[in-house]
Amino acid sequence: MQKIRQQLTLFITGQNETIEQIRTQFNPIQHSLIAAHVTLCREDEIEQLDQVLANIKNIKLDSPIQMTFGAVEQFENGKGVYIPVKAGNESFQQLRKLISKGINDSPRALLPHITLVHPRNSTCTSEIFEQIKSYPLPTVLSFYKISLITQINGGKWEITREFDFVISKKE
């Protein structure tokens, strides 16, 4: 029996060279499974997929979701490394509410972040963490589209559908 997972994701489309370099060097397994991203909704939050997709199609924002990221941090007893959001969390949470409208009007709060070293398939040491801290990482990123991604039997995540949610202002 196949195990199929789906999530909604905001992929990093600009300023991701350094992030991907870190992921390639220190977390090649995760790098091969999925590009750098911010998880928008986990699989349990999109079980009513038809309603979720209908909600996404109705989202039209005047500007992209912009997030400011802080310094890298370790998590899960130092095994993992991520870049947590410092500002822009409100617009991220509002986007999550629009997606779950009519399904769950109070979705749980997620801390937006970019995982550099995933503890499931790599381990960060003190030396690795010091190296990662020395990289010039982007601090402000903008997101314009939502990607529905699918993983089958623990394989590579594939983009199933993409949705632009920013309306361009053309006079």
Rank of each mutant, 00 (worst) to 15 (best):
V85L: 02
K86W: 12
A87N: 15
A87K: 11
G88F: 01
N89S: 05
F92A: 04
F92V: 05
Q93L: 09
Q94P: 06
K97R: 15
K97T: 06
L98N: 14
S100Q: 12
K101G: 11
K101W: 10
G102S: 10
N104G: 03
N104Q: 11
N104P: 00
D105L: 00
P107T: 10
P107S: 03
R108Q: 00
R108M: 05
A109D: 09
A109Y: 14
P112T: 05
H113F: 03
I114V: 02
T115S: 09
T115L: 03
L116R: 04
L116A: 00
L116V: 04
H118I: 06
H118D: 15
H118P: 05
P119V: 08
P119R: 08
R120L: 13
R120Q: 13
N121E: 12
T123F: 11
C124W: 02
T125L: 03
T125C: 03
S126P: 13
E127H: 12
F129R: 08
F129C: 06
E130I: 13
Q131N: 13
I132F: 01
I132D: 00
I132S: 07
K133F: 07
P136A: 07
L137D: 05
L137Y: 02
T139H: 03
V140I: 04
F143W: 00
F143K: 06
K145V: 04
I146F: 09
I146L: 09
L148Q: 14
L148I: 13
I149N: 14
T150F: 02
Q151R: 03
I152D: 12
G154A: 06
K156M: 07
K156Q: 09
W157K: 01
E158C: 13
E158A: 11
I159S: 09
T160Q: 11
R161Q: 15
R161K: 14
R161M: 13
E162F: 01
F163Y: 13
D164Y: 14
D164I: 12
V166H: 03
V166L: 05
V166T: 08
I167V: 11
S168R: 12
S168C: 10
K169G: 08
K170S: 14
